[in-house]
Write a protein that binds this DNA or RNA. Structure first.
Lengths: 192, 192
DNA sequence: TCTGCTCCCTAGCAAGTGCTTGGTAGGGTA
DNA sequence: TACCCTACCAAGCACTTGCTAGGGAGCAGA
């Protein structure tokens, strides 16, 4: 019970935003789920936008903190790739609502000045992956005929889109999924 | 100019639904884009829902028609997989708006009774891929240690999510993308 | 010329949207 | 006792939503 009311409301909003979408979730929906009236929400938050903002910012700060640690560890391209993929699936496991919001709403929210930082984050993302992949090609651990930009998109999309079907309470753990996925990504599905 | 007014309005609506999302696109937005008033839309269509319905139904009928032809050709698992992937990227090329709508809105629309057929289509999809993959494992063309259900999800998601960045007018053609993707999927990105 | 059809307009309604306002109950602090 | 804080309520405002009712202009066939 040490969680502040504010944090409760944020978690609750994130769940609703993830399930119904940002625009389809009304402030009354959120208030109903919290057992209060819609107007009372505005004691805690400035606007519906600022609720979404706080959810996304908190999530991205945590995620990029983890990525930063991985890169700082200074392992080889293949190990770094594996760690980043594993960390991403882990974040899907721990923050499914936040990932879903980022996946589904980022494109539209990015157009608002307030969410301009999403563009920066995307750029960071792209740079991270491009570095891993080009380093890997240079070191000869990844195939030389790769279209790095294309591979980056495929990895990025495939990892995050898993939030649509991944079940945090299911039998398949995040690391199981990461292992299977890395198996396909690195070695393919065709028999040697 | 032989295209009926109805077809024009459908194409126009599809574009807007894809860009802004179904809920965020208002009937006034559609009417404005068509150069008429919102009320006039209801001469052509019963409701906003029926516009989306017609768009999605038309697209899925065409898509599954193509899939049916591929399966009917009776090639091996690997050739069938390649053809299905190529056909999917081709549909992204030819009907980007429809694919985007299906990707972004299906989850929410499926909850409406009217769009119950989306569940059936998903089941058809799953069966198609499961057959291809299990046949391939049985025939020894795909690795025996694959989690078929997981691979199905990865392929499905990765193919369709490409609609987010694929540019029909760009230098990269749909078959280029399909080739690159099949290269990764079948043989992986790691150097042998 | 009459009739019917297509396509659109004018004008609006009921429901719902995010958000604001003035206020209250209960508690802590000096 | 005086003051401030947190957390909420009741009521409603300005606006947007999908959709409707009724009508009119242009054209085609009889």
């Amino acid at each position: 019970m040490k969680t502040s009311r504010r944090a409760e409301l944020l978690a609750l909003s994130a769940k609703l935003f993830a399930e119904r979408g940002y625009v389809s979730t009304t402030v009354r929906d959120i208030a109903d789920a919290a057992g209060i009236l819609s107007g009372s929400l505005y004691h805690h938050f400035d606007s519906k936008e600022s609720i979404a903002d706080e959810i996304i910012t908190g999530f991205l700060d945590e995620l990029f903190g983890t990525y930063g640690e991985i890169v700082a560890a200074g392992h080889g391209p293949r190990e770094t790739l594996e760690a980043v993929v594993a960390a991403s699936f882990d974040s899907i496991h721990r923050r499914p609502a936040e990932v879903a919001i980022y996946q589904n709403e980022a494109k539209h929210l990015m157009q608002l000045p307030r969410f301009g930082y999403l563009n920066q984050r995307n750029a960071e993302f792209r740079k991270l992956w491009n570095t891993i992949l080009t380093d890997g090609v240079r070191d000869g651990v990844f195939r030389a005929d790769l279209d790095v930009e294309l591979v980056y998109r495929f990895i990025r999309d495939t990892v995050w889109v898993a939030v649509r079907w991944y079940n945090p309470d299911g039998t398949l753990s995040a690391s199981d999924v990461a292992k299977q996925y890395l198996g396909i990504l690195l070695d393919g599905i065709a028999k040697r």
